[in-house]
Simulated assay, not measured.
Amino acid sequence: MFRSRPGVFRAPAVALVAAASLILTLSGCGVDPITPGDARGKAASDSSDSKGGGGEGAVDCARAKCIALTFDAGPGKDTPHLLDILKEKQVPATFFLLGKKHVDRYPEVVRRIHDEGHEVANHTWTHRVLTDLDADEVRDELSRTQEAIRKITGRTPTLMRPPQGRTDGTVSDVSRDLGLAQILWSVTAKDYSTTDSALIRRRVVDAARVDGIILLHDIYDGTVPAVPGIIDELKRRGFTFVTVPQLLAPGTAEPGTVYRP
């Protein structure tokens, strides 16, 4: 999990602390995650016309072997190259963007992410751990990035990822007010702790499963070079890459709700 601030490497042991914090935070505050399959099933049972996913549902993840590729804490200097790779491979992704020194530094890259059909999402303004903040501070962290992205793309994000995956009732309430669903993950390469692209690739491929959500960071040196191999191998294994909204379709991500495979 992403414990460090962008551009700062931490020892792998820190990731274990972050993992424990995530489990305690989710289990101790009444936040019950919903799986992508449950989201699809709920939509199917609630509506006979299956309109929930709209155009997002072109891929039927109830039948296909879907997996979502997501990137946190960008954009950064390597994001344009990543976008070139995704375009060449015809793979959509979901980008959870950081506001300060990222969205405000690379507005043209944010616009390109949006224009090329990827999902643009929120990863707070300064990457503060939201469960350490009061409601007004949580709102500020999220709303500033919401507005910055809206000004660039013309669209307000509907998804967010809490730093370190740490959430609670307060975070959920504020997210609901801002129209943001919370998206966690099932696969992490711990790319903050290594520049070994082959290792990053192996960690992702080994942990990949149906309805998975892959967490990577396009701000670390070893990550973007690992992406072509990840895509090629998972395609070879029969996976279809989708955005997070496509993974949930015909359901839609409900504000405040936590989604985790």
Rank of each mutant, 00 (worst) to 15 (best):
V171D: 03
P228A: 08
S186A: 12
R63K: 15
M160A: 13
Q90V: 00
I34N: 09
G28M: 11
S50A: 06
C29R: 15
G99H: 10
V109W: 10
T79S: 11
L24C: 06
P261L: 09
E108C: 00
A208L: 02
R202Q: 15
D49G: 05
R40I: 02
S197D: 08
R209E: 06
F9D: 07
S50Q: 11
R161E: 01
D78V: 00
T158V: 02
G55W: 10
L159I: 05
A189P: 03
E254M: 01
R111L: 12
L142I: 09
G256F: 11
R202I: 01
P250I: 06
V224A: 12
F71P: 03
A62K: 13
A19V: 04
A62C: 07
R236H: 06
T194M: 03
D140I: 03
T188Y: 13
V174A: 11
C29S: 13
G229E: 01
V204T: 06
T126Y: 10
H127K: 13
R139V: 00
L98E: 04
D104P: 05
L180H: 12
R150Q: 12
G55M: 05
L24H: 12
A207S: 12
V187W: 05
E119D: 08
L130Y: 15
S143G: 00
R150M: 01
G28N: 14
A13Q: 14
A20E: 10
I200M: 04
S193I: 02
P255Q: 01
A68Y: 12
D232K: 13
T124L: 03
R3I: 09
R63Q: 14
V103A: 05
A181N: 04
A58I: 12
F241W: 11
T35D: 06
H102Q: 14
G53C: 10
A15H: 15
P92E: 07
G256R: 08
G53V: 01
L22F: 11
T223C: 06
R139E: 07
R236D: 05
I85D: 07
P245L: 04
K51L: 14
A58F: 12
